[in-house]
Design a protein around this nucleic acid. Structure first.
Lengths: 206, 206
DNA sequence: GATAACTTGTGAAGAAATTCACAAGTTCAA
DNA sequence: TTGAACTTGTGAATTTCTTCACAAGTTATC
């Protein structure tokens, strides 16, 4: 398949969210124009994005909400459940562990790790915090799909190396540190400081 | 000034982080090549990004770490302090309020709001949670620069409208909801669900 | 069944972002 | 002073992404 741009995948995610909204409200069909209006894009963009994966609409009518959202879930790989581990049981890590929005969308948090002996053994939202050192062993027995890194910046690279070595091929990084990983590993970064700086730039140069 | 791409601003943020690292380690100069290697980009990209704002380097030598980081801070608007309010004192909101990394970079959290009477009056990290209804009045007296939205998706648009009406011109949105705001208002979204779906896509189609 | 009003899917055009490639400037050593 | 080794800054080329524009298909109405 032709390489799909990151921006396209992000938009598919947005479309899916709207479609699920429409589904709940019992709306059966939707046009690219309506879909675009909500997502701050254009109808041509919507159609182009979808066209990479096939043609799902009916001319003159639009898209079946149920069908398109099912196809998007399939495209995004959301038909299965993903096993997620959280590394770092600090403020952010604990908040993530307790946030149930993930599980609702098929991302099941199966373990929380921390390297601080004072935290190991405590529970977060029903999950006992495990020692980080046990990750390699445990990952061998039951390989997680995605590792969420909620550790301090200085530790991030080291932990990422460990995660990669354990065979995990996707990382969601909350640490404000640019990770170096082999390109067989997918990384997404959530960098709040960077977003704030983007706002600062906009306010300054707007 | 020519419009600066979002991607450029994000990279400036990344460069600044490295430069601060180098500054701490007492390194005086750095080449675009070294800067690029850390940020997963190319030296040409670094030079092009910087060229939008002037020419800060010395041929044959590179960039002065101290000078370039000062210029980047200036460009990004980080020379002043920004007043930030957090709306929503749930798990995420509370974690953000307690995260001191923001303050270190000049984003000072001045207030936390929530609409839940059960939460109002409690403290988070030394800040008393205020009733959301009092925001318009308080914003008049002391206008915040940035509002961080950590509210449920269903409430996000309503809260955003309120924030915009209160004269705030920058929003960092943690709610998984696409906000509609006038284009005089800058919005950045941190959407963990979307990032996870991006990873899911990568794992599925990688 | 004819017409009007929609809407999709997609090549082609256009715009935007990235990379190339090189003149020009700097440093260092002999 | 010369030459070798670097490195920047930037037009031009290239690649990538977005928008345009329209043929072709669908539905509704009379």
């Amino acid at each position: 398949m032709k390489r799909i741009a990151d921006s396209t995948v992000r938009r598919l995610s947005i479309y899916l969210r709207f479609l699920e909204d429409f589904e709940k409200r019992g709306i059966a069909t939707i046009s690219s124009d309506e879909l675009a209006a909500r997502g701050g894009t254009t109808s041509a963009q919507v159609r182009k994005d979808l066209s990479f994966f096939g043609s799902f609409g009916k001319r003159g009518l639009g898209y079946s909400v149920a069908e398109l959202s099912a196809r998007l879930r399939q495209i995004l790989g959301l038909e299965r459940e993903w096993q997620v581990i959280i590394i770092g049981a600090g403020k952010i890590g604990a908040a993530l562990a307790q946030y149930h929005g993930f599980a609702q969308r098929g991302f099941r948090i199966v373990a929380v790790y921390d390297s601080d002996p004072a935290k190991v053994g405590r529970s977060v939202d029903g999950l006992v915090i495990r020692p980080l050192a046990s990750l390699p062993e445990e990952a061998k027995r039951q390989p997680p799909d995605i590792a969420v890194l909620a550790v301090p910046a200085v530790a991030a690279q080291e932990v990422a190396d460990m995660v990669v070595k354990a065979g995990i091929r996707a990382i969601l990084n909350f640490a404000p540190h640019q990770l170096q990983v082999p390109d067989t590993v997918a990384v997404k970064a959530v960098n709040m400081a960077m977003e704030l700086e983007g706002l600062s730039f906009a306010l300054t140069n707007g």
